[in-house]
């Protein structure tokens, strides 16, 4: 088992290097660099100053040299600083000689995105599991049809449109929920309970919107898994033994139907750190999606590479965890791994 783990971990290194090389090359294929921003398109900004900037950031060097420099820094886990004029650290905070702390970009954006994604994943599971089970048990009958219709509408509805409609309805017409942002203006004067309520209020719509589109996948996955299992011989056997229906459904069928979900959750780990640009822009949430999108538009290479590297490392880790969890849950897989 340990040997298997070490082998998997070892193979992650060349994979990561390969991924980073490809993303580095693709990123540099796009025309333009940090000096071609819209603000820089100003006759008062001289070409010499832009050239100076390119030299400072080594953008005038051949791409292989640039990649080598980046790899060298990454070897010491140094994600570097952003090319943007604030020059904040990409990943984690740094303290200067005077004791001023400058927070890392990912450090600030990640917790927010993580919170939203964990909340919406929880909502998705809490809603999709029962929906999928009910759907399977009432296959092709009205409840099943209604649920399938509902999750497909949720999947197909354009998130940004629904977001705006809900913002209008809950924020402008009814003033139940705040429209955008993360905290109220008077957040700092609130009691801690009030602070939690305030944050939840601000997160309600973003979480709802992002769960809605994920609902369909999981619910249908559970439904189909359940249907597969319910037609297995051992379920017939269980029923024939005279087991109560509850026991058949939840102990025998559901547990086996949930196995494939492990893979899905493993694969959704990198998704946890990726935010949605559209949702974050609409709700004015300073999360990872907006950070990445702005970095791409600005050609802020250290930030792009930082997020891509962390994302791909998490993807690989997620795959590994999924495999391990699978082995833990399914004796047949376990025997295969141990061999």
């Amino acid at each position: 088992m340990i040997k298997y783990l070490l082998k998997r971990l070892f193979w992650m290194v060349p994979l990561l290097v390969g991924i980073s090389l490809v993303s580095f090359l693709i990123m540099h294929l796009a025309p333009g660099d940090i000096t071609t921003t819209e603000a820089g398109f100003n006759p008062k900004a001289s070409e010499e100053s832009r050239q100076k900037l390119r030299e400072i950031y080594n953008l005038d060097k051949p791409i292989t040299v640039q990649y080598g420099l980046w790899l060298k820094r990454m070897a010491t886990l140094d994600f570097g600083t952003s090319f943007a004029s604030h020059q904040r650290p990409v990943f984690w905070e740094k303290t200067d000689q005077q004791g001023n702390v400058s927070k890392g970009l990912i450090q600030e954006a990640l917790p927010i995105t993580l919170l939203i994604n964990v909340l919406s994943l929880t909502v998705i599971i809490a809603v999709a599991l029962p929906l999928g089970i009910v759907s399977a048990l009432t296959q092709n009958r009205p409840p099943d049809r209604a649920i399938t219709l509902f999750v497909f509408i949720g999947f197909a509805i354009p998130g940004f449109w629904l977001a705006l409609v809900l913002m209008y309805w809950t924020g402008v017409v009814n003033s139940w929920l705040p429209i955008s942002g993360l905290h109220s203006l008077q957040y700092d004067q609130m009691h801690w309970l009030g602070k939690i309520a305030d944050t939840l209020k601000h997160l309600a719509l973003p979480v709802f919107i992002s769960s809605l589109s994920g609902l369909a996948g999981i619910a249908l996955f559970v439904r189909n898994g359940m249907l597969d299992v319910l037609h297995q011989d051992y379920i017939t056997t269980a029923r024939a033994k005279g087991l109560p229906e509850n026991s058949v459904v939840y102990r025998h069928a559901l547990r086996n139907a949930l196995l494939p979900l492990i893979t899905i959750f493993g694969l959704s780990i990198p998704g946890l750190i990726g935010g949605s640009v559209i949702a974050e822009s609409i709700f004015a949430i300073p999360g990872m999606g907006k950070l990445f999108y702005d970095a791409v538009l600005m050609r802020d290479f250290p930030v792009i590479m930082g997020i891509l590297t962390i994302g791909s490392a998490l993807t690989l880790l997620g795959n590994l965890l999924a495999d391990l969890a699978y082995a833990w849950a399914d004796p047949r897989v376990r025997r295969g791994v141990l061999k």
Partner: peptide, 27 residues
């Protein structure tokens, strides 16, 4: 088997309560 729909109804109900309870109309 109708009884098995209870969890989903509960979840939806909880969600909508969460959404509703959070805002009081301001005059």
């Amino acid at each position: 088997m109708r009884s098995h729909s209870t969890p989903s109804v509960c979840a939806l109900l909880a969600l909508s309560l969460l959404l509703n309870a959070c805002g009081q109309p301001e005059t």
